[in-house]
């Protein structure tokens, strides 16, 4: 069962709770495959996506999930609205609550913002990515995808490669896969791995070849050019040479290793176009599963009595 008002992070969930969320996403995927992609479940419920950062992928995914469930979806972005006028997150949350929001999906550049919002409103809050903290729905859809492909998560070797320092996806996946019994390896340059990352239970690598050896799942993170300007790595050419996924390196992993990417990809930098488009990559599958996972969450969090 899922007994919380909100979904803020994976770290504080148990393996049973994660398993239950993934189980609930299964039936939702069946709905997405129908011709008429709609169930009446959340009629009369209002889902607000409050995005202080741009994200076509995540926002669209939540919006579709809400619509497939017959909820009313309202979008508010940081550039429009009172947000730009400097209204505090607390006040924005209270206003949305007064407008009748049942679920608020928050994307925010600062870690912990969803926690603050969740404390401020009775509406359920779903963290759609907060700073470098967590992106729990991304991890759930990643785990859902891997579970579907591999039949389970326990015992798998999962390599997460790239800018772990700034990656909320990496953090959520480290917690999620570790809890589900997988071995998680993180790999990147020392300047892009966060302090004390080994205390999360992940194994730390700086050599990509070593990190990939025998891996069942390879998760490539997006490298952002601005990190170079911040002096965190010398340049994309050297980065691609050290941490880019190519055919030779892919051959070091397990024969049936899955290649994942939370998107958007830098083809030719962290991943070659050939691999991104190969049948080893489940990147598009991740997108579909994202909608199913978000439908499951909207369903579980928008119940009248589910709020404490």
């Amino acid at each position: 069962m899922y007994k919380y008002k909100d979904l803020l992070e994976i770290r504080t969930l148990s393996a049973e709770e994660i398993g239950f969320l993934l189980d609930t996403a299964g039936p939702m995927k069946e709905i997405i495959k129908r011709q008429i992609k709609k169930v009446p479940t959340l009629r009369g419920k209002t889902v607000v996506t409050l995005f202080y950062e741009n994200s076509t992928r995540t926002r669209g995914s939540f919006e579709l999930a809400a619509k497939y469930m017959s909820a009313d979806a309202i979008n508010i972005s940081g550039s429009s609205s009172s947000v730009a006028k400097g209204e505090s997150l607390y006040d924005t949350g209270r206003t949305l609550q007064s407008l009748g929001a049942d679920v608020i999906v928050l994307r925010h550049p600062m870690a912990g913002a969803p926690e603050l919002l969740a404390r401020s409103v009775q509406a359920a809050v779903i963290n759609a990515g907060d700073g470098a903290h967590e992106h729990p729905t991304q991890a759930l859809l990643d785990m859902f995808t891997v579970r579907e492909k591999k039949g389970g998560l326990a015992g798998l070797r999962v390599a997460i490669v790239g800018d772990v320092l700034h990656s909320r996806v990496a953090r959520s996946n480290i917690w999620g896969f570790t809890k589900m019994g997988a071995e998680v390896r993180v790999c990147g340059p020392a300047t892009l791995l966060p302090a004390g990352v080994e205390e999360t239970g992940a194994l730390v690598f700086h050599q990509l070849d070593q990190a990939l050896a025998g891996a069942d799942v390879i998760m490539m993170l997006r490298i952002q050019k601005e990190r170079q300007q911040q002096g965190l790595f010398p340049g994309l050419r050297e980065y691609a040479r050290l941490y880019g996924l190519n055919e030779r390196r892919l051959a070091l992993a397990a024969g049936d290793a899955l290649v994942m990417h939370p998107g958007p990809m830098n083809r030719g930098v962290e991943i070659t176009a050939a691999i991104a488009d190969s049948n080893r990559a489940v990147i598009e599958e991740q997108v579909t599963n994202g909608v199913a996972v978000r439908m499951a969450l909207l369903y579980l969090l928008s119940g009248g009595g589910a709020q404490a």
């Binding site: 039936p27 369903y299 119940g303 589910a306």
Partner: peptide, 23 residues
Amino acid sequence: LDITLYRDDLTTLGRQPVVRQTE
């Protein structure tokens, strides 16, 4: 057929019932 998502009493239940697969 799993009819959970079509129930008309979802907002009055204490917990969301478990959704199972429609096959």
